[in-house]
Design a binder for these strands. Structure first.
Length: 568
RNA sequence: CGGGGAGUGGCGCAGCGGCAGCGCACCUGGUUUGGGACCAGGGGGUCGGGGGUUCAAAUCCCCCCUCCCCGACCA
């Protein structure tokens, strides 16, 4: 490809709306362009990178026997009604009403894949089977941001596995998990498969593939000592001693605490009125609602954030209005069981400490409330979000939080969908009908270029790993079109590379040397061959590795072989 | 959905009642060619949209739209 023909124009300055470094560089270097908020076009350079990501995913999926198919992006609303995700995923669904019916633009394809392949997987003899596709997905993101990292329309590869039972599903999962590791190994960036929360997709065991990055919207807990890694939404912590707290358990008593609906306000109020109070010895009370609509009270130390158990959601204003026993800002455990609220207590809450808690009466709190003496817990559980320095749940080490971007997610779905979808059945060996044990495996194809850009760039621009580089090499001809020696040498080198089937780009533009060198660095192609008048006079060119900055002077006659060695 | 900020040429910005500008990019000619050149000439804008105030509106007022940032559960 000749750069003079390539549809690209680099920018000296990034658009003002680009915050993330990947967003700035991908736009400046001419890989992508915004069409609307959270909607991006891929220009020729960007598409080349996208195709490389796709190729890696295809190769690794194919190598474990997954078969590619292609599902529609437009789904009839009926299949979403069957699983009720038309309601449970309402906040992200894009709906289309047109002549001919109501449709959903697919944000994920569990319903569609089952509807498509279940006739082909009607017998235990047809299982196990794994299919995958690379498709455009749509989500009505609350807030698209960071360029390609969070968009409303994006490219995703998603695989779905079908097995006869749990054990078979686990073994398939392991196989796909390994394929994911192979994919990320080839992409060549640091990543961590972390234990994760199932979220709205449902299911059991699952892992997120996290890439540490400053811009990341997620955090995972990581223990250097043993390798424990879990999303902050799923991470637990080891035992913590509460030895620093000494508060003789006096009689429980009620005090007036006007206008103190938060932990901070209560502690400030009590401290200002002669009481001993701290966030650590206050109980943070949070009402959550389970999938059956039942109310639960979660109690954690006031200095910690609550981690809502999966399957539950935080109560909303309407839930409080529906229950006259709940007084926002003054909720506590005393009397809650009697009105049908289940009490969950965090493991770290001590039975030897008198805590401050809401009195379930507006404007009042209770002091010296003791677990086991004044109230009992229905469940003792890990209910706090881990923080830096918490003890590791698996060893004696400490947990550190790592900011990261989610690049992939693998799930053991089990029967989550098969139980809801009538057609998700096969005839088993004994002739009875059985549901599929499923797995699903998603990787954000269009997010990968941005993730790589986030972690692989320098002050001059992008730095592509060879596996993703839009071209393998760019021939930067300084003085092309005006210096005959340079022009001839560059043409000869370029032709020779093409003859050897190297994916080469020739910068044949008649521009100042500085512009061409800056562009080459900005675009970030892995290898550069710099052809300049100085070197050509001696019969040499310079081969530079964009990743390391290392440059070698190579004779023109040998440069093709030299590069082939590098690419081998 | 709540709070904050911003919409002026492809991109970055200035102008804030009186002829719509600058840098980059683009076009023509010439000079230049190892780190974002130089000289000369040129093209491109219903100043986000609508309404209002005014002799006069990019500029003041009202409504709407779009974009960006922060938050959206701790009771």
């Amino acid at each position: 490809m000749l750069m003079s023909k390539l549809v690209v124009k680099t920018l000296r300055e990034a658009p003002a709306d680009a915050e993330a470094i990947s967003h700035q560089l991908l736009v400046r270097a001419g890989y992508i362009r915004r069409l609307a908020s959270g909607i991006y076009s891929f220009l020729p350079l960007g598409l080349r990178v996208l195709r490389k990501v796709e190729a890696i995913v295809r190769e690794e999926f194919d190598s474990v026997g997954a078969q590619e198919l292609f599902l529609p992006a437009l789904h009839p609303v009926e299949i979403w009604q069957e699983t009720n995700r038309i309601n449970t995923m309402d906040d992200v669904l894009m709906k289309v009403e047109v002549r001919g019916g109501d449709f959903v633009l697919g944000p994920t394809h569990e319903e569609a894949v089952i509807a498509t392949v279940s006739p082909d997987l009607s017998s235990y003899r047809d299982l196990p089977a794994t299919v995958y596709q690379i498709q455009t997905k749509f989500r009505a993101e609350a807030r698209p941001r960071f360029g390609l990292l969070r968009t409303r329309e994006f490219m995703m590869a998603d695989a779905y596995s079908f097995d006869v039972d749990k054990e078979a599903m686990r073994s398939t999962y392991k196989m796909l998990f390994d394929a994911y590791c192979a994919i990320f190994d080839r992409i060549g960036i640091e990543y961590f498969p972390v234990e994760a929360d199932a979220g709205s997709i449902g299911g059991d065991v699952n892992h997120e593939f996290m890439v540490p990055a400053a811009i990341g919207e997620d955090h995972f807990a990581y223990c250097k000592a043993c390798g424990y890694a879990a999303n902050i939404e799923a991470a637990t912590r080891g035992e913590r001693t509460v030895s620093t707290i000494t508060s003789p358990a006096k009689e429980m008593r009620k005090v007036a605490t006007p206008n103190s609906p938060t932990i901070k306000a209560v502690v400030d109020f009590l401290s200002g009125h002669g009481f001993v109070a701290s966030a650590e010895t206050s109980l943070k009370s949070m009402i959550v609602i389970d999938s059956q609509g039942a109310y639960h009270l979660l109690l954690v130390p006031g200095d910690r954030k609550v981690r809502i158990p999966s399957g539950m959601r935080a109560a909303e204003a309407s839930d409080f209005e529906a229950n006259p026993h709940l007084h926002l800002g003054y909720i506590g455990p005393i009397g809650m069981r009697e009105v049908g609220v289940t009490i969950w207590v965090d493991r770290s809450i001590s039975e030897e400490v008198g805590y401050c808690t809401g009195a379930n009466e507006v404007g009042y709190h209770l002091l010296d409330v003791v677990l086991g003496r004044d109230y009992i817990a229905d469940h003792v559980f890990d209910l706090v979000e881990v923080v830096d320095g918490d003890p590791c749940p698996r060893c004696d080490g400490d947990i550190a939080l790592v900011r990261s971007v989610e690049a992939g997610h693998t799930f053991q779905l089990g029967l989550t969908y098969s139980n809801k979808i009538k057609s998700a059945r096969f005839s088993s060996e004994d002739g009875s009908e059985a549901p599929y044990y499923m797995g699903c495996y998603g990787i954000g194809i269009s997010r990968i270029p941005a993730v790589v850009a986030e972690v692989s760039h320098d002050a001059n621009g992008l730095i592509w790993p060879l596996e993703l580089s839009p071209f393998e090499v760019v021939v930067v001809a300084l003085g092309y079109g005006s210096n005959d020696l340079v022009t001839e040498a560059a043409d000869r080198i370029y032709d020779s590379l093409i003859d050897e089937e190297v994916d080469a780009l020739l910068d044949d533009r008649n521009l100042a040397a500085g512009v061409k060198l800056k562009d080459a660095d900005l675009i970030g192609i892995t290898y550069q061959i710099v052809v300049g008048a100085r070197g050509v006079a001696d019969g040499n060119v310079e081969v530079k590795d964009r990743r390391t900055g290392e440059a070698s002077v190579v004779a023109i006659a040998e440069v093709t072989d030299f590069l082939l060695d590098l690419l081998a």
